[in-house]
């Protein structure tokens, strides 16, 4: 096609045409992007606006409240919500610390050491991961119940379970450690450093992105976890986390009474995580992209 247009004028015309068409396509793109942004943001805007709605507490057909106020937020403190919130926060903080340590131990070892059981261990964990994790919930619930870590004491039980099985999620950070050159380790070893010193003084300072990524995902996991928290708290309000508690407010018999309060609670739960996430966004993107490419 291009070879056939040898003369000057058509190619110039084509050039102008391309410019015009690129302007049109850009406009179309902008329209699509604005549309996408609106669709993606609408639910969140709705939650935010409805949390300030005071004239009624059930679902309505409009978005902008007729009467604005903080009633819903104030009412939250007359419910068990503060307890749920603290439960969630404590769980998330503990899990963020310990899960990070465990995941890093696991992934560093599998990336750096070559021992006899390494390959079988990885294959075994791959197969283990194919079983639905939900199955183990039944037995874990019974065991935790015997240990007295369910219902109103659900928080320690939850923390224990989240942390204990976290070693399985080593893939992303292993991929990261794989990219750090091994010659660094060897150089330090020749200089007389022990393996432990190599990890502490050489690898860790280089791994800031992956450490932050692991902490971030470990923190956000329990913040939004629902199934297991629900199973363990077993309808006892004091042991619920925010997700389970708020879920109850949207049940058939409560929704007309608690709908706007759910929105307020949702805003309070979402805001801290969102701010944290936006600040550390760069690390998250790096981790997610790296993980996907390595599979």
């Amino acid at each position: 096609m291009i070879q056939s247009q040898k003369s000057e004028t058509p190619s110039m015309k084509r050039h102008m045409g391309m410019k015009a068409s690129s302007r049109i396509s850009n406009t179309v793109s902008y329209v699509v992007l604005v549309l996408i942004s609106v669709i993606w943001l609408i639910p969140f805007v709705c939650i935010l606006l409805q949390s300030f709605r005071c004239e009624s507490t059930h679902q309505v057909g409009y978005i902008i409240p007729q009467k604005w106020g903080l009633d819903n937020y104030r009412n939250l403190f007359n419910t068990n919500f503060p307890r749920w919130y603290t439960n969630t926060l404590i769980t998330a903080l503990f899990v963020a610390v310990f899960q990070t340590i465990i995941v890093l131990c696991m992934s560093y070892t599998l990336s750096r050491f070559r021992f006899k059981m390494r390959k079988p261990l990885m294959q075994f964990m791959l197969i283990l991961g194919m079983f639905p994790g939900m199955l183990s919930m039944i037995i874990l619930y019974q065991v935790l119940k015997d240990l007295g870590m369910t219902q109103s004491n659900a928080v320690p039980g939850l923390i224990l379970v989240y942390i204990a099985s976290s070693g399985m999620g080593y893939y992303v950070s292993k991929g990261f450690f794989d990219t750090i050159s091994k010659s660094l380790d060897e150089a330090a070893r020749i200089d007389g450093a022990t393996r432990f010193q190599v990890l502490l003084k050489i690898i860790l300072p280089l791994s800031k992105p992956i450490v932050i990524y692991t902490i971030l995902t470990a923190f956000m996991g329990p913040w939004g976890d629902f199934v297991f928290a629900r199973y363990i708290s077993f309808n006892v309000s004091a042991g619920m986390n925010a997700a389970v508690g708020l879920y109850g407010w949207l049940s058939q018999d409560q929704i007309s009474k608690n709908y706007t309060m759910f929105c307020a609670g949702g805003v309070l739960v979402a805001v801290p995580v969102t701010i944290l996430f936006m600040c550390l966004q760069r690390y998250y993107v790096e981790g997610v992209t790296g993980g996907a490419v390595k599979g």
């Binding site: 996408i36 942004s37 993606w40 943001l41 639910p43 969140f44 709705c46 939650i47 679902q59 956000m220 913040w223 939004g224 629902f226 997700a243 708020l246 879920y247 949207l250 929704i255 709908y259 759910f262 929105c263 949702g266 739960v269 979402a270 995580v273 969102t274 944290l276 996430f277 936006m278 966004q281 998250y284 993107v285």
Partner: peptide, 20 residues
Amino acid sequence: TVLVMTIAVPQFISLLYVSK
């Protein structure tokens, strides 16, 4: 950023809200 922000909000909030 607009899109990424929606990842940050815990899924149970957005999913429950959208479901309702």
